[in-house]
Amino acid sequence: MPETAISDEQILGLMQHQQTREKGFRLLLGKYQERLYWQIRRMVLDHEDANDVLQNCMVKVFRSIDQFEGKSALYTWLFRIATNESITFLNQRKKRGSTSLDEEGAPIANRLQADAYFDGDKLQAALHQALHALPDKQRQVFNLRYFEEMSYQDMAAVLNTSEGALKASFHHAVKKIEHYFRERGLE
């Protein structure tokens, strides 16, 4: 059975029992790991950082699956854990005063272009540079809408925010990014 065809209820059912817990967790990973990875990667940018954050996040999911009460969709719960882990990581990195991508004060765009796991063009690098300047919440909204192509309805469930507020946030983010490009003559 393809992993995406497995329902969340089946996965949770398997994870409730000690004997089938690992099997259930592997199915959960198969279904959601890529989506969560990209969500984290767009927040932290660097692959190694994204891998660390994703692994921490999934260990927490495995350990605390009993606390999932089913009040929201499983992906919503996973998304929130991943978002919290990403923000915690970014805050710790800010406190340390350096990042693996912008240490020595180099612009993110330059560092990205030198990154072995980034092969986007100058405009894509500039887009990530512009995104990095957005507030965390606004960046999340932009990522979900622009890269994951999520509907506002689904975003409202995941981010626990009204659709109107999300639309406004996305529009603001787009305008800021446009401004960033215009200022640098990248149109």
């Binding site: 767009r42 796991y117 980034f118 986007g120 894509q124 690098a125 887009l127 890269f147 787009v174 305008k175």
Partner: peptide
């Protein structure tokens, strides 16, 4: 909203694993 971002959406994002 932004034809530039619409155009950028057509090209690949650039992140690899």
């Amino acid at each position: 909203l932004s034809p530039l971002l619409e155009q950028l959406k057509e090209s690949k994002e650039g992140f690899q694993v």
